[in-house]
Nucleic acid binder design. Sequence first.
DNA 1: CTGATTTACTACTAAAATAGTAGTATTAAT
DNA 2: ATTAATACTACTATTTTAGTAGTAAATCAG
Lengths: 153, 153
Amino acid sequence: MKISARARYGVRLMMVLARNYGKGPIYLKDIAKEEEISEKYLGQIVIPLRGAGLVLSSRGSHGGYMLAREPSEISLRQIVDILEGDCLVRCIKDPSTCSRVTTCASRDIWMLLGGKISETLGSVSLAELNNIDHEKAEIHGRGSAVKRVKSKA
Amino acid sequence: MKISARARYGVRLMMVLARNYGKGPIYLKDIAKEEEISEKYLGQIVIPLRGAGLVLSSRGSHGGYMLAREPSEISLRQIVDILEGDCLVRCIKDPSTCSRVTTCASRDIWMLLGGKISETLGSVSLAELNNIDHEKAEIHGRGSAVKRVKSKA
DNA sequence: CTGATTTACTACTAAAATAGTAGTATTAAT
DNA sequence: ATTAATACTACTATTTTAGTAGTAAATCAG
């Protein structure tokens, strides 16, 4: 039971966009460089986030990505749900895959657990996440994200 | 983010043993038949459960498996922890695998989530799980487990 | 003792999922 | 036009998963 790189990378991508909210579009290249993630792979990850309306994009030489709404209005749950396609057990989404559904108690428990996970992820917004990040950065002395690395200046 | 068949099967195996607690050892063959799981595969799954002291085994012609303690004293968390080797993200168990550990906020969230999952699984015992099961069985009319299928009689 | 039956252990394997890479097309500013 | 960004599609190496197969060891009945 682990979280895919896809979802983890997606969250980090969104955190960078959240830090730069209101500053216009950010290049994927810069995010990839800062977060040390393959740009091509990030390019695949951002597509469904855009498709779900969490991210806006613009193409061309001054293109890039930005959040579609405030960081406080985007929860981790939304991001993870989009990127982590599969649920805990298949029979939750699709009960027809198992004939034991009506009598299976363990299924009930996996559903309960799935609910708890959603609840937990739903209770954390990108804004809160970046607050944690900022506190840690103050202690350990890290710069303020993209700006420092940005290729233009 | 899904639960492996290994862990799911392990939970079902333990539920059968819980239903038959106090009745002496149960054959893996019967459990496999009842739960419609490969006996050989179950044989692999039960080993670590025995190793962790949750299950007792005896070999030979009247061998089998039984719980090492009362169903109310065994939580889902124990079972899942034993069978689901990996944690949510590798950097939790082994911080040295990532250089960003000190400044990474997302890691904090995955740890929080991991805690919630443990908490949830820890709050459910095999006894409680079988109560749910029994309620469902009464509604949908299923027999009382192994006995019905048992190969000897 | 012997044979039947069970667990214990080890090695192997087909299929699926994961985490990418690569290349091309499209869009937009200079 | 050229450049520089996103958009899209296809492919692939590696790892993980979910088993299968076969042998060894223990235990009980007769």
